[in-house]
Simulated scan of single mutants.
Amino acid sequence: MFGGQLMMLGIVLAVFALLVVPSLTGNSSGAAASAGGAGAEPERASAAPAPDPTAEAFRAVRKGDCLSNHKAGAEWTSFVPRPVPCASGNAFVRVTGVVANAHNCPDGTGRAHFFYTDAGGRTTAVCFQREFRPGQCFVARLTDTPDGRVRMEEADLTVRLDCAATGTAIPEPHNTVLEITGVMPAPETEPARPCARSPQDGTTYWYWITNGDTELVCATHPEAAG
């Protein structure tokens, strides 16, 4: 009987070894596999942001750069900065600053700005002022007065237009083209005839104090400018 008990004990121990021991050794590696990701989705690297050529163009601009951007009519030819050599005939505006908020750009006659906000919410504003040169033309709106004079209603100095443009080529609400005849430092006091090219000059001129009160720009009708 004692031998039978020993035999039964041996069978129980054998079954225990088959069921319990492999389970213990298997769980040690299985737990690691579950924690480490055997059969789980592998971690993926964060996707790189898509290239943004417009943002890159805005951030590449520096104070003092010149751009060819201008209005050919009612709208700008491009809001993306287009750098050109400042000595070239295409240099229409000069950058006065690059800031994060367009409200920090100086305003006034001859000045404007572009700004761009990328997908990440970062804004870049390019502040600039007009590079005035004799011979360039822009648009204005003139009206006749009851006393026979001509009154300047408004002008858009950011437009660059063919001096020979007429009719529908002139964007509304303007009705005429004016040609720049002179660009000079703004005087401390307003002279009587700042644009006259000689004491005998009877041409009708209009003038503007521009770019932060630093320049005086003179203009007249193209047929009288030559």
Rank of each mutant, 00 (worst) to 15 (best):
F2A: 01
F2H: 01
F2Q: 05
G4E: 08
M8D: 04
M8S: 09
L9C: 01
I11N: 08
L13Q: 04
A14F: 05
A14Q: 03
V15C: 10
V15Q: 00
L19H: 01
L19S: 06
P22I: 01
L24K: 15
G26P: 01
S28L: 12
S28T: 11
A32M: 14
A32G: 09
A32F: 07
A35T: 12
G36M: 09
G37M: 09
A45D: 08
S46A: 12
P51L: 04
T54R: 12
T54F: 12
T54M: 13
E56M: 07
F58S: 11
R62H: 13
G64V: 07
D65T: 01
C66D: 02
S68P: 02
H70Q: 05
H70S: 02
K71Q: 01
A72Q: 00
G73Y: 01
G73D: 08
G73W: 02
S78A: 03
S78I: 02
F79G: 07
F79I: 05
A87H: 07
A87V: 09
S88M: 04
A91G: 13
V95F: 04
V98M: 02
V99C: 06
H103K: 13
H103A: 10
P106N: 03
T109H: 02
G110F: 03
F114L: 04
F114D: 05
F115A: 10
A119E: 12
G121C: 01
T123F: 00
T123L: 00
T124N: 05
F128G: 12
F128E: 07
Q129G: 11
R130S: 07
R130G: 08
R130E: 09
F132H: 12
R133D: 10
G135L: 03
V139C: 13
T145M: 02
P146Q: 03
G148W: 04
R149H: 10
M152D: 10
R160P: 08
L161E: 07
C163F: 04
A165S: 11
A165R: 10
G167Y: 13
G167C: 11
A169T: 08
H174L: 06
T176P: 06
L178D: 01
E179S: 15
E179I: 04
E179F: 06
P185R: 15
P187K: 05
E188I: 05
T189P: 07
E190M: 15
R193Q: 09
S198N: 04
P199Y: 09
G202L: 14
T204A: 09
T204L: 14
Y205K: 02
Y205A: 15
W206M: 10
W208Q: 11
W208T: 11
N211M: 10
N211Y: 07
G212H: 10
G212C: 06
E215F: 12
E223Y: 13
A224E: 14
G226V: 13
